[in-house]
Design a protein around this nucleic acid. Structure first.
Lengths: 344, 344
DNA sequence: CTGAAAGCGCTAACAT
DNA sequence: ATGTTAGCGCTTTCAG
C-alpha cells in the first residue's frame, strides 16, 4: 500500500452557486433542473450551461426533505451468492426502468435480526416502497412495515400471511407437484438433499410440500441429507455419495436447489448410474446453467425474473394512480422434466 | 391479480411526536436516539420506551441534511449475474460491518452511459465514499468523481490511471502469468475463448496479457472464439466444440472465465480428450464452483472477496483519521493449476 | 414565466 | 444533563 496523490475535499456546489453563475434565481434554476415545463427556452439553456460547466450535482437529500418525496425503492434479499436473487434484482431493475424510481439493495444473510436492522436503516431513508423476500419477519419488522405508510411487496413465496402485496410462487405446491411427477414416473424410494438452514423458509416449504405429496400416496421420504456452507456443487456431490452409500436402494434424489442437484448429477453420471431408468434426479430453480450439463436435470422454474418485474410494477403503479390496497399474485411454476425423470 | 386489503397511508412520525409522548425536548430525544452519552439513564429509558411504543423510525434525510453527514457508501458494479461481483459485494459488506457505513449498490450492465447515470444518481445522495469497478469511465463520470470531494476507490483492476485509490489485480499480468504457465507446460497451439463484450475491459486485458506472454516467446494465438448472452456453461460447451472442429490441432484452450471454461471442460471430458496430456484447459476467477467438477480446471484467483474488504477498509479509514490521499493496492493473484495443465 | 418567503425534520452550536 | 436557536439545500406556495 502506497500513498500516491492527494484528493481535495471542497464544499459541494449548491443551487445558489449555479444561480449566481447564470444570474437566474435559485427557484428558476431548480425548475430547470427538474425539467419543469414552465421555463423559457432561453433561461433554460443559460441555466443548463452553467450547471454543466460547474459540474453541479443536485443534493437529493435537501430535495427529498423539501418535497417529501424519495424516488428510492428498498429491496431486501437474503443473499447474493445464490444466483437466484441476482436474477430477481435484475427483474426489479428492469421493471423500475423509466419510472423514475431507483432500487436500493440490502442483504440479510438469512438472518431475521439482520433483516430487521437493514429494514430499519432503509426505512429511515423514507423510500417510496419496499420489496422483501419472504413472508417471515420479526414482529418488529412487521410492525415497521405496517406503519410505514408505503407499498410493501413480499416476493418469492405465497405460503403465508401477507403484509400488503405479494408476488411469488407456492413452494409447498412446487414440492407437491414434484412429488406427483416422481410418483407418476414410478419412483418409490425417494431421498431428499437440502441445506441445513432453518431460516430458508422456501426450501423448507418445498420439502414439506414434497412430503405431503408423497404421504398422499402412502409414501414418505426414505432418507434425507443436509449440508451447510462451502461450494454447493461439491457439496451436492459429497451428499449424493453419502446418501447413496447409506441407502443404495434409493431410486430418486430430490435436491432442494439446482446447484447441489448438478453436483449430484455429475457424481451419478461418473459412477455410471442408469439415469433416469434406475435412478431419477430433480432440483429446483430452473437455472439456465443447467443447459450446459451432460444431461438436463429435472427442475421447477422459480419465475425469478418475472417475480422481480411484477413486484416492481406494483410499486411503480402505486405512485402513479394512487392505488391503495394489497395485490396478490401467485405465479404457476413450470416443471421441466429434462432428462433425469423417466417418461412413461 | 386480486385486491385483498387496504393499506393506510398516514403521516410518518417525527421527533416532535416522540418528544411530546415522553415530555422531553426534541433535542434530548435526538441525543438518545443517536446513542450519545450525555443523557441521564432515566431520561434515556423514558425516551426509548416512547420511541419504541410509537414505532418511531428516524428520518435520515433530515438528519443528513442537518449534520452534512451521510453514512452511505455508493458501490457500482457492472453486473450481478456474474457470480464474481456478488462476492466482491459481500467482501464490501463485511469490511463495512461495524463502521457505521452502509453500502448501496448500483448496476451498470457494462454500459459506460449507465454507469455515468447511476453515479450521478448516487452522488446526488452525497455518500461518504464511492467504490467502482474498473478504471474506465466517461469523462463526465471522471469529472464528477474528481470533484465530489469524497474518497473514491476503483476496484478489480490496476491497469490504468486511477482517480483516487485503487484495489485490484493486474489482469494483464494475470494473462501473462497464464501464458508463462501454458508455455512452461509445453503447450504450443493455443486457442482463446471469451465474451464479445467491448466494455469488459478486464477480460480484454487478460487476453492482451496472454498475447504479450505468448509473443515474448515468439508465439501467438492459433485461434479465437467469442460469444455473447445465454447460459455461459452451455456457450462454453458450444464454443469449445466449434473451435476444436475448426482447429483439431489445438493443444490448449484458455477461457476468459471459469463458467465457460467449465462448459468446455465438460465437453472435452465427454469427447474423451486426453486432459491434460493431449489438451490443456484454463479459466479465470477461482470460483469455488470448480471444486465440484469432474476435474479441477486450472484458474487464476481474482481475489474478489479480499478486494471488497480492502476497498471498504479504505473508505472506512478515511472517515476515521481524516486521511487524505489515494492508496494503491495491487494484489497478487495465485495460479491454481488444478488437473487441466500438465505438470512436467 | 419568474421571484420571495416559508419550512421540510433534524442536528450543530451555544446557552443554561 | 437538558433546552434554545438557527439553519442544512432544496421545493412548495403564493405573488407578481
Amino acid at each position: 500500500m502506497t500513498q500516491h496523490r492527494p484528493t481535495d475535499l471542497r464544499r459541494p456546489l449548491t443551487l445558489r452557486d449555479v444561480s449566481e453563475a447564470c444570474g437566474v434565481s435559485e427557484m428558476t434554476v431548480s425548475r430547470v433542473l427538474r425539467n419543469r415545463a414552465d421555463v423559457s427556452p432561453a433561461t433554460r439553456e443559460k441555466v443548463l450551461a452553467a450547471a454543466r460547466s460547474l459540474g453541479y450535482v443536485p443534493n437529493k437529500i435537501a430535495g427529498a426533505l423539501a418535497s417529501q418525496q424519495v424516488n428510492l425503492v428498498a429491496v431486501i434479499v437474503p443473499s447474493l451468492s445464490n444466483l437466484v436473487f441476482p436474477e430477481v434484482l435484475s427483474g426489479i431493475s428492469a421493471g423500475l426502468e423509466d419510472t423514475g424510481l431507483q432500487p436500493v439493495f440490502g442483504v440479510t444473510n438469512y438472518s431475521p435480526e439482520r433483516e430487521e436492522a437493514v429494514l430499519y436503516e432503509m426505512l429511515s431513508w423514507r423510500p417510496s416502497g419496499v420489496i422483501m423476500a419472504g413472508l417471515e419477519h420479526t414482529p418488529a419488522a412487521r410492525a415497521m412495515l405496517e406503519s410505514a405508510g408505503i407499498p410493501v411487496v413480499e416476493i418469492m413465496d405465497t405460503d403465508g400471511e401477507a403484509i400488503d402485496s405479494v408476488v411469488g410462487i407456492s413452494h409447498r405446491a412446487a414440492g407437491r407437484q414434484m412429488a406427483e411427477a416422481i410418483l407418476a414416473a414410478g419412483y418409490r424410494r425417494i431421498g431428499f438433499l437440502g441445506t441445513k438452514m432453518p431460516d430458508d423458509h422456501r426450501a423448507r416449504k418445498r420439502m414439506e410440500g414434497l412430503l405431503e405429496g408423497l404421504e398422499a400416496h402412502g409414501l414418505g421420504l426414505a432418507e434425507t441429507e443436509f449440508y451447510q456452507g462451502g461450494s454447493a456443487l461439491l457439496k451436492g456431490r459429497e451428499m449424493t455419495k453419502a446418501i447413496l452409500e447409506r441407502r443404495p436402494d434409493l431410486d430418486f434424489l430430490y435436491f432442494s436447489n439446482d446447484m447441489i442437484g448438478a453436483g449430484g448429477l455429475l457424481y451419478c453420471i461418473e459412477q455410471g448410474f442408469d439415469i433416469p431408468a434406475g435412478l431419477g434426479l430433480a432440483g429446483f430453480n430452473g437455472l439456465d446453467f443447467l443447459d450446459g450439463l451432460p444431461m438436463r436435470l429435472a427442475t421447477i422454474d422459480a419465475c425469478r425474473r418475472e417475480i422481480g418485474e411484477k413486484a416492481a410494477a406494483i410499486i411503480a403503479g402505486r405512485g402513479a394512480d394512487g392505488l391503495v390496497g394489497g395485490v396478490f399474485v401467485e405465479l404457476t411454476p413450470r416443471l421441466e422434466p429434462g432428462d433425469t425423470i423417466r417418461r412413461r
